[in-house]
Amino acid sequence: MTTVNMLEAKTSLSRLVEAVESGAEEEIIIARNGKPAAKLVPLDVGAKKKRRLGLARDKYPPLDFEAFQAMDAEIEALFLGETEKK
């Protein structure tokens, strides 16, 4: 965490924004008369949002490899337009 005074922030705002944007700095505190007044942080646009894995857990019955392979004939029939299994 870097702290800069107001005058430095005014004269080098582009450099400070670039440092936060690039990830070189997580946040920059801007101080007025030595007291923290503002915080410069990157925008959270949602692209870095963590995704929860396993949302479909327990919604479908378990399927082992043999059962998965057994569905090949049924899928092939559907692609070929056959409605009845042979």
Score class of each variant (00 low, 15 high):
Glu25Lys: 04
Glu84Ile: 07
Leu78Met: 11
Gln69Ala: 14
Arg32Ile: 11
Glu76Met: 11
Glu74Cys: 08
Asn5Gln: 06
Arg57Leu: 14
Glu18Phe: 04
Val45Ile: 11
Glu82Val: 08
Gln69Thr: 14
Ala19Glu: 06
Met71Tyr: 11
Leu55Asp: 11
Ala67Trp: 08
Lys35Pro: 02
Lys86Trp: 09
Val41Pro: 02
Leu43Thr: 06
Lys49Gln: 10
Ala67Phe: 05
Glu25Phe: 00
Lys50Arg: 10
Val20Asp: 00
Asn33Val: 03
Lys48Thr: 06
Phe65Ser: 14
Glu25His: 01
Asp58Phe: 11
Ile75Thr: 10
Val41Gly: 02
Lys59Met: 14
Ala70Tyr: 05
Ala19Val: 00
Val20Trp: 00
Lys85Met: 15
Leu53Pro: 07
Asp64Ser: 08
Gly23Tyr: 01
Leu13His: 02
Phe65Ala: 15
Leu55Met: 09
Ala9Lys: 01
Glu66Lys: 11
Ala37Lys: 08
Ala70Cys: 03
Lys10Ile: 12
Phe79Asp: 14
Glu84Lys: 13
Lys86Glu: 15
Arg32Thr: 12
Glu27Arg: 07
Thr11Ser: 08
Leu43Gln: 07
Gly34Ser: 02
Glu66Trp: 09
Asp72Leu: 13
Asp58Arg: 13
Lys50Ile: 10
Pro36Ile: 02
Arg32Glu: 15
Gly46Met: 03
Lys86Ser: 13
Asn33Arg: 05
Val41Arg: 07
Ile28Gly: 01
Glu82Arg: 11
Lys86Leu: 12
Leu7Arg: 12
Ala70Thr: 06
Met1Tyr: 04
Glu8Pro: 01
Pro61Gly: 06
Glu76Pro: 00
Leu63Asp: 09
Leu55Arg: 08
Leu78Tyr: 09
Ile75Lys: 08
Glu21Phe: 07
Ala19Gln: 09
Arg51Phe: 12
Asn33Met: 05
Pro36Arg: 00
Lys48Asn: 09
Leu16Phe: 06
Ser12Arg: 10
Glu25Ser: 05
Leu7Cys: 05
Ile75Asn: 06
Lys59Ser: 12
Asp44Ser: 07
Gln69Arg: 13
Ala31Arg: 00
Leu55Thr: 10
Pro61Thr: 08
Asn33Gly: 05
Ala73Phe: 08
Tyr60Gly: 05
Ile30Gln: 01
Ala67Gln: 14
Glu74Tyr: 14
Gly81Ile: 03
Phe68Glu: 10
Glu18Lys: 09
Asn33Gln: 11
Met71Glu: 14
Gly23Arg: 00
Leu43Asp: 06
Thr83Arg: 14
Ser12Gln: 13
Thr2Ile: 10
Thr11Val: 06
Asp44Gly: 04
Gln69Asn: 10
Asp72Gly: 08
Asn33Ser: 09
Pro42Thr: 03
Pro62Tyr: 15
Pro61Ile: 04
Ala56Phe: 15
Ala38Cys: 05
Ala38Asn: 04
Thr83Lys: 13
Glu76Ser: 08
Lys35Ile: 11
